[in-house]
């Protein structure tokens, strides 16, 4: 009964959201080098949110990175396989085909990609997509003042009512220095940069 005012406020007010914090202006190369651990810069334009994430755990080839306000993103070889605390989270993903596609190991056809989510009643909801390699070209990029030679690879995916294009900037050793990866309908794309120490 005591939470009734909260409910009313939440239902009646549209939440006004602040502008996305511009972390690039706040982070310096010196700070990155002093951090003593690798960092990810993750920006989510649709949520107007940005944060730096540090590695927290590694299980079975999946590394989970976590921000100071307890948002986490988990990656398998640089590709997002789970998110937490973003709201409409990616609960899990099957991205083996996409990894092969990135390495140029599949021919030009479509390969499946699977995601799982929770629906409004917190039940598991699977979404499947058909993906293919888009353009692929070498590109020199700069991440926080540090240049990297990379291959820019597009992954074009479509599902029954959704489509998205992920973009990866992949170094010669397989490191994904920078990427734009689609998370979910409400979260949209996450823009991720690896701040090398």
């Amino acid at each position: 009964m005591t939470k009734w005012p909260l409910i009313l406020i939440a239902l009646l007010c549209g939440c006004s959201r602040p502008a996305m914090p511009d972390l690039r202006q706040q982070i310096t190369r010196a700070q990155i080098d002093a951090a003593g651990q690798p960092l990810l810069l993750v920006e989510i334009p649709a949520l107007r949110n940005a944060a730096t994430l540090a590695p927290r755990s590694r299980t079975g080839g999946v590394t989970t990175w976590r921000s100071r306000d307890d948002v986490s993103l988990s990656f398998r070889d640089g590709l997002v396989v789970a998110t937490r605390r973003l709201g409409d989270d990616l609960m899990s993903a099957e991205i083996e085909n996409s990894l092969r596609l990135l390495r140029g190991q599949t021919d030009a056809g479509y390969v499946p990609r699977f995601h799982s989510y929770l629906d409004g009643e917190y039940q598991t909801l699977f979404r499947s997509f058909q993906c293919r390699a888009g353009s692929r070209r070498p590109e020199r990029i700069e991440v926080m003042g540090r240049p990297h030679a990379s291959t820019r690879i597009e992954e074009e995916c479509r599902g029954p009512d959704l489509r998205f294009t992920n973009i990866y900037w992949r170094g010669a050793d397989g490191t994904i220095w920078k990427s734009r990866q689609w998370i979910s309908p409400r979260v949209g794309y996450a823009e991720i940069e690896r701040l090398h120490r």
Binding site: T64, R66, D70, V71, R84, R85, G87, D88, D89, L118
Partner: peptide
């Protein structure tokens, strides 16, 4: 909010 605003869980 799609029920996902709890802090990220501890890892296995």
């Amino acid at each position: 909010f799609s029920g996902g605003r709890d802090p990220a869980p501890p890892p296995v």
